[in-house]
Design a protein around this nucleic acid. Structure first.
Lengths: 323, 323
DNA sequence: TTGTATGCGTTATCAC
DNA sequence: GTGATAACGCATACAA
């Protein structure tokens, strides 16, 4: 169009302070440019970081993000999924509470809704998550290398892929190194379950190390040990998974496998945007994990220090906080 | 209408699996039934709890909640506010980063958008928050009662009402008890600022107690003390504000003033719903705080134990977490 | 009780 | 380059 015409239009827009009405645009376009991220618990730092990852990329791509909390309930998760069609959203990044309702997902897909699953694996959907098994293998091998032998494992809930993968990685490393697991018990990813199960294990099995499927349970193990006079890393080694910024406030610093939740969120949203753009060659992505050698496990023989092993002037990571 | 007619309609709805299209409804109703909660940082447990409070009540009232993260940036906050009119939302619960753009808020109000401010006080808006000054007064008095005298204070940023109120409560209690503050310095609510300022204070002033304007800074003080060989509660008393569930993982258990963030979120949403319903007699609400007597301050003389002072079997509060 | 017409604000299309 | 018109799906108001 002619620049002069263009100018005239822009001037008119400014004069009448015209704002296009989204509702009308949606009505015609049959697209809302709003996506949701549905997750088990927004109050969990791991997930809120993931949500921020989704949101950051969504904003970049011109999408608005709706954060939906399933409150760890499959029923609420279903309600949230229903919101998708009800509210006329374009799609969603879903972190399922456990195994999601496959039939419901199919029906939503038939309605034209794009859904990307993040962090946890679900059959038939591209995987966007971390290399949990590999990270777990590395962690376990590290503890064995440090000399721990009577190793107990606090697993996560059955059926949750992250929990299963981490357990598998643990078992494989133990097998490869010819060590038999002292005990394997199932928790539910809460601090309380970690503490309770650890107390029992400490009483009955006398482990010299406990690996937990997430940091919260690992902290439970740490405190359980302390309450029985067992201090890490000397009396007992403790390690977990996640390494969100907040766990850095724990003393002693936890040995842990970092799962890049922010990046997982970003990647999931990137994939969703691609699908919304009409792409169908959806490929997942599995992020590498990072072993953080903390102070809840012994130092390597010979006194070498791990990369992140020194406490002290840790810059950043905790961001500005509240009041 | 006749029950028989009604039946016919419902059957038709079921047969054609008819779903009303929100976009069209909005277009006519000029209301989206979607509200936003805009907050400084969703990755901060204090705010994510608040967001859950908002969301829980919103769902109850038939509203959909959009969680917007300002990333502690006034600019992003403004963008989020603009989203309100852009996306055609009905209103928002706003937790401002610092002093919000009053003019912008006014303009949004003129557009018919209802905005409720939560946690932090802004002139001209009903206050929905906690009794920060009173809680701070109580906390300070408690420390003085325990015998601490050389008390330093880590304040929050200037201009943030919660920070100012807590500082005022501290100063008043000190004055009333005839004790002069050892030092008052300003931090920015981060762990790092708490640690850095505490190190300086410990070196220069030799305090026997440090009160911080939030838990994160208090934890910084705790760690700063430890790094100089000063252990709480004997060598130095430490206390803060917030007491979100996650701080319970810190050892030793922090003495802290609990701010009911979930309830604040709920109340803010309740007010918003009222306003959206056409009410104009908007009255705020100020929640009482709760003094949590932890292990980072001395026990009361005579060996009595505070209500929450015993560690150990703390049930709940941490909810299920992740993987 | 039922049917029909109209408008909400955009955008796409077509004739000018 | 411009202007008019239809259609998106729903809610309402009015007529039959």
């Amino acid at each position: 169009m002619r620049p002069e015409t263009r100018e005239k239009i822009l001037r008119a827009i400014a004069e009448l302070n015209f704002t296009p009405e989204r509702a009308a645009q949606r009505l015609r376009a049959k697209a809302s440019h709003v996506v949701a991220v549905i997750l088990p618990d927004i109050a969990n730092p791991f997930f809120s970081l993931l949500a921020r990852g989704v949101e950051s990329l969504a904003a970049e791509r011109g999408y608005c993000t709706l954060i939906c909390d399933s409150d760890n309930s499959c029923e609420k998760e279903l309600q949230n999924l229903n919101l998708l069609s009800t509210e006329g959203l374009d799609g969603a990044v879903l972190v399922p509470v456990s195994s999601p309702d496959r039939a419901r997902l199919q029906r939503l897909a038939q309605e034209g809704l794009k859904i990307v699953i993040a962090d946890r694996r679900v059959q038939g959907y591209p995987e966007i998550g971390a290399a949990n098994a590999e990270g777990s293998y590395e962690l376990t091998s590290y503890l064995l290398m440090l000399g721990y032998r009577r190793v107990g494992y606090l697993a996560g809930p059955t059926g949750v892929s992250t929990a299963e993968d981490r357990l598998a990685g643990f078992e494989e490393s133990m097998t490869v190194h010819g060590v038999t697991p002292l005990a394997i018990v199932r928790g539910d990813f809460t601090y309380e379950s970690g503490r309770r199960l650890s107390l029992k294990m400490l009483r009955e099995k006398e482990p010299d190390a406990i690996i937990a499927a997430n940091d919260l349970m690992a902290i439970g193990a740490l405190r359980a040990g302390e309450s029985r006079g067992l201090l890490a890393p000397g009396d007992i080694g403790v390690a977990g998974f996640d390494h969100v910024p907040w766990t850095q406030l724990i003393v002693p610093e936890l040995t842990s496998v970092r799962i890049p939740s922010f990046e997982i969120g970003q990647e999931a949203m990137a994939l969703l945007a691609k699908q919304l753009g009409g792409a169908s060659d959806v490929a997942g992505k599995v992020f590498a994990t990072e072993l953080v050698r903390g102070a809840t496990t012994r130092r390597v023989r010979g006194g070498k220090t791990g990369t992140s092993g020194t406490r002290g002037h840790r810059q950043g990571g905790l961001g500005r906080s509240h009041a």
